[in-house]
Design a protein around this nucleic acid. Structure first.
Lengths: 240, 240
DNA sequence: CTAATAGTGTCTATTAGACATTATGTG
DNA sequence: CACATAATGTCTAATAGACACTATTAG
């Protein structure tokens, strides 16, 4: 049999395969807190519990896995998050009561203000502070996935500027430092942090917008990210 | 309907889902070269081309995704590789002629001597030098996957001792340095490398076996890895 | 002027790079 | 002893931590 004939007779349902889904772990920073977007499940299994936005690939609509997670996140936020990165894939026979299941998890970051009104309008979606997850009933293994995503983002805080995507397009260095501090769970030396940021600026990865904050104190320079800033990894990590 | 009733009537084949497979990217170091284990495909699609060892989850046998990749790698090598790590998951509508497909890729490392006879006995499996991949017809998107795995392993060479798992249980620092140099594609200062290794030894992560190499030159100390060495990440990377 | 936050200067500690030097086996 | 490779010593450069200091706004 040649390949063409084989493909014609190929039946994708001939063998049992795992239940396959994609989940999005969307973080933001608001009111000095890190928050994660959760959705109250309206269907079995784990109906009524809170879970990550996600679902099945639509083979007719999605060209790839990222399309799926973007589609699901857009449903709840109205926007395509500016930062999306694959976190990990979990597959085993026990995580889902329906049977052997697999989920590909993506971490995404978005500015709170960019989706505030849309999230408020979606009745089953809600931002939850990471520190208050303990009080919530979570579906499947989503508590562990959130913890793993937070851990990965913590590493990003040590060696990159990626957490900046939890902030609005224009942000101050003090705000960004605080995001990093919340992720690391400890203060960072202002000097160290700013030295790193100046090097990014020299490299053209962080851009001084020329604008300033206003208020009853010294105005702070508003910076914005260059698109290539996402790829920059510092040769030396901040220390823990 | 309660959850029990729902689960009873749940049909996993009700919706079309992607073709789902797991692939293993197994590297080793032999004759001063990095090599990857490839398998000549005996079935459509891409019959006759070379691909990564992998296949479908056996829902009855495998408890999780790692079980699947270990089972597939064991078929070709006879052993469970001492280092296994998830690389990434690729899913789109174009990578497989049969249709929308997903593969979860794992990077694994093994000592060449630990599976040499078994690999030789498997007629369709073969170690291929990374530098000679250009000559080979590769199935699906496996060339890109190998490149991505090599890139990830390069990062490991910059910030960890993980590449040591491509070597036998007992190895010299010179051998290990050369593995790292091959991965980085450039020489490393011996002083820098050995300083890092002494710190690992002080931390109990690298163990002096008390044995030595023999030969017409100064004998070298043989070291072995502590099981926890795999988790150690240096705070500062080697530079490129 | 005061309060509050933004931003800088400077010293130390750690660790990588560069390169020379010494050590220890076999034949 | 000669050779080859293993292992060490030492200086410089880069960058993080600590902490004190200066700058700039609103009111």
């Amino acid at each position: 049999m040649n390949e063409q004939a084989y493909l014609k007779t190929y039946d994708p349902k001939a063998f049992a395969s795992p239940i396959f889904s994609v989940d999005g772990l969307l973080f933001t920073y608001h009111q000095k807190q890190l928050k994660v977007l959760l959705v109250e499940r309206s269907n079995h299994p784990d109906k009524g519990k809170w879970g990550l936005p996600g679902g099945f690939v639509d083979l007719d609509v999605d060209d790839n896995l990222e399309d799926t997670v973007v589609r699901k996140l857009r449903e709840k936020t109205g926007v395509r998050p500016p930062y999306i990165e694959q976190l990990s894939t979990i597959g085993n026979r026990s995580r889902d009561k329906r049977g052997w299941s697999v989920t590909v998890c993506y971490t995404a970051l978005v500015a709170h203000q960019d989706c505030e009104t849309h999230v408020d309008s979606v009745s089953d979606a809600r931002w939850v502070e990471l520190d208050k997850l303990a009080d919530l009933k979570l579906a499947f293994d989503h508590r562990e996935i959130i913890e793993a995503g937070r851990e990965a983002l913590k590493q990003r805080a040590l060696d990159s500027i990626v957490p900046a995507y939890t902030l609005p397009d224009k942000f101050t260095l003090s705000e960004l430092q605080h995001v990093h501090e919340v992720l690391l769970g400890k203060p960072i030396q202002k000097t160290s942090f700013r030295r790193r940021m100046s090097r990014l600026e020299e490299a053209g990865l962080l851009i001084d917008t020329g604008k300033f904050t206003a208020g009853p104190r010294r105005p702070a320079v508003l910076y914005t990210l260059s698109p290539s800033a996402v790829d920059h990894i510092f040769v030396r990590n901040l220390e823990l």
